[in-house]
Amino acid sequence: MANEEKKIWGIHTKDDNLFLKENVIAIGWHEMGDLSKIEANRDAFKEKYTATYSDAKKGSIATGAGMLYRFCYEAQIGDYVVFPSIINREVNIGVVEGTYVYDPSQPDYVQTRKVKWLKHLPRTAFSQGALYEIGSAMSFFTVKNYADEFMAALDKDFKKNYSSDSEDDSVGATAEDIIENTADFILKELSRKLKGYDLENFVADLLRAMGYRTKVSPQGGDSGIDITAYKDELPPRILVQVKNQNGDINETTIQSLKGAMREGDYGLFVTLSNYTKNAQKYLESTPIIRGINGTELVDLILKYYEDLSEKYRKMIPLKKVYIPVSKEE
């Protein structure tokens, strides 16, 4: 990449005009005050952030303090900035010209730095992968994967246009990234919010959305069976065991489900993690028991999401969108 010593930063804002007309980049967190008065290390920023936002969760403290520290101290004069503007759907590329300045006259974006905008290009000039990277959920972040593409856009002869007949090779990878991020989000929310019996109730609701009648076993009196499910009024009976644990499920654990089954029953084992090799072999040799791992559970959640109870749709908030995929798919 050209300008190896220079970093490339991505930034978002809800005030495009501030950035474009006043030639600045800026972020909020006005309650933090003048960042230059905070000692120039991450721990000091975390301490200030925690004191300022007492209700902030642990994860958001590290993320928020880290962005503020990078904006104030890590971004250097001469670094490049990529800013996707909403009002005109353009990608704006500039260079940082000033050190950090606290501007209390701004209503929202008080943490500022001067920039010189070098180019304003339509979004169609960039690959889907590059657009996805600068669509980060963070306000201020490092551009890494497609840095070369944004730097190439500064060349005077740059004419790349992904709206032409040329194939965008990044589409497939971008779609996979989106799918993987969604799956990670769902599994993290399930693991974080549903422990023990709560996860059993969720799986019962998912089975109901799939068309099964379900009954959750009383707590402590299930003999290893968490849910009993029927497809209709008649047998077979499906006995379900649900496990929320960090490690993979072993063969012995699945055998305990088999031991609780009567002749004519089917078994279903559900886990957020996966199965050991021996457990997988056992499932393959025992067709009356089906094992569902975390990945397969996510697939079912996405398939039947709209039929889940409102309680769980609120717990795992998802929006249905269409994403581009490669033509081979």
Rank of each mutant, 00 (worst) to 15 (best):
K7V: 08
M315A: 03
E97T: 11
G196W: 04
A56P: 01
R313C: 01
W117H: 04
E284R: 09
K319Q: 09
L302S: 06
R113L: 01
Y282M: 02
I323A: 10
N88Y: 09
L154H: 01
R313A: 03
D43L: 12
K21W: 08
K37N: 04
R89M: 09
N278Q: 12
I25V: 15
W117N: 05
D34T: 05
N23G: 06
T50M: 14
I77Y: 00
R192L: 12
D184Y: 14
T124K: 11
G294T: 10
K320D: 02
D79W: 09
K21Y: 13
S54Y: 11
V242L: 05
Q106F: 05
D198L: 15
V95K: 10
I77N: 01
K58Y: 08
G267S: 08
Y102Q: 03
F269E: 02
E180N: 13
L318A: 02
I289P: 03
M151N: 07
G264I: 00
G94E: 05
A40R: 14
K156F: 06
Y212L: 10
G294S: 04
E74F: 04
P84Q: 06
S139L: 12
G64T: 09
A75C: 11
Q280R: 14
P84Y: 06
V325W: 02
Q106M: 11
D157C: 07
L18K: 08
S166T: 13
R313K: 15
I316D: 00
V203T: 06
M210W: 02
D222N: 09
F126A: 06
S127Q: 07
T174Q: 05
F202T: 08
T276L: 06
V321I: 15
T252K: 11
R213I: 11
T112R: 14
G98H: 03
K281V: 11
L154A: 03
E189P: 00
P317G: 00
K144L: 11
A62F: 06
A204P: 08
Q245E: 08
I61F: 00
V171S: 01
E251L: 12
N293P: 06
K14C: 07
Y212E: 08
I134V: 12
F71Q: 02
I254L: 10
N201L: 15
D34S: 08
K156T: 08
A65P: 00
Y146W: 10
L268P: 00
V24P: 00
F150L: 01
D155C: 03
E200M: 10
P122A: 06
D148S: 13
V298A: 07
L18M: 14
Q76T: 04
D205S: 15
D148K: 10
G211H: 08
Q241S: 10
L206A: 10
E329A: 11
T286W: 02
A51I: 07
Y69I: 05
L20P: 03
S85M: 06
G33Y: 01
Y102R: 07
D265P: 01
L239Q: 07
K57M: 13
E176R: 11
S256I: 05
S217T: 15
E31Y: 07
A44N: 10
Y312C: 03
K119A: 13
S309T: 10
I38V: 12
R113C: 04
G172Y: 07
F45L: 05
E296D: 14
